[in-house]
Amino acid sequence: MLFYLIGGWIFTFKFSLEDAVKELRPQLCYQCMKCSSGCTAAKVVNNYRPHEIVALVKAGYSDELINSDVIWACSVCLKCVEYCPQRVSPFEVVMALRNESIARGRVPPKSFVEMAKSVLKVGHIQEPMYIMSKDFEEVSRMELGLPEMPKPKDFEKFKQHVLLVGFEKLKEVIRV
């Protein structure tokens, strides 16, 4: 739940899974399998089936998904968004499930944690790296003559806001 103060009014945004998913109307899905037929991730990740995820949400088995890692397999290619004949958009359903899983204090796969940590540390998903060139030379931005990577100026404020818009729960879990 989030509070915003706008012109003296307090607005409350509740992000419960039910609300998020209702908007996406998974109940309209008639299981045409188009999403699973074209899904990038489904072809390489064995148990990732967008139509099945929508069906499970529709049938009320969201908890199963929230507690499993499979929802983090989506490749964000947006093909299901584009071609779903009922505008259900399995991608958005998966994102809502991911959000809910974070809200319930579950830890996402390690790489996501790393990225989130980095956002809270430098404002980006990772810090500038040393890159190995073809000649086995390690180069950095500076050595290539590139200007320094910009960071949020008022970092404390930025971090505070990031936590406010949804990283709060994650912070407790990953203990930054």
């Binding site: 299981q31 045409c32 399998m33 188009k34 699973s36 037929s37 074209g38 072809k43 093909k79 071609y83």
Partner: peptide, 26 residues
Amino acid sequence: GSPMEILQDADGSLYFDVFDANTNRI
């Protein structure tokens, strides 16, 4: 199951993936 798209290979043949719910495989 419905295919999402139909593609044409280099040799001109058509191919597509379709998820078959009856056998639960692509």
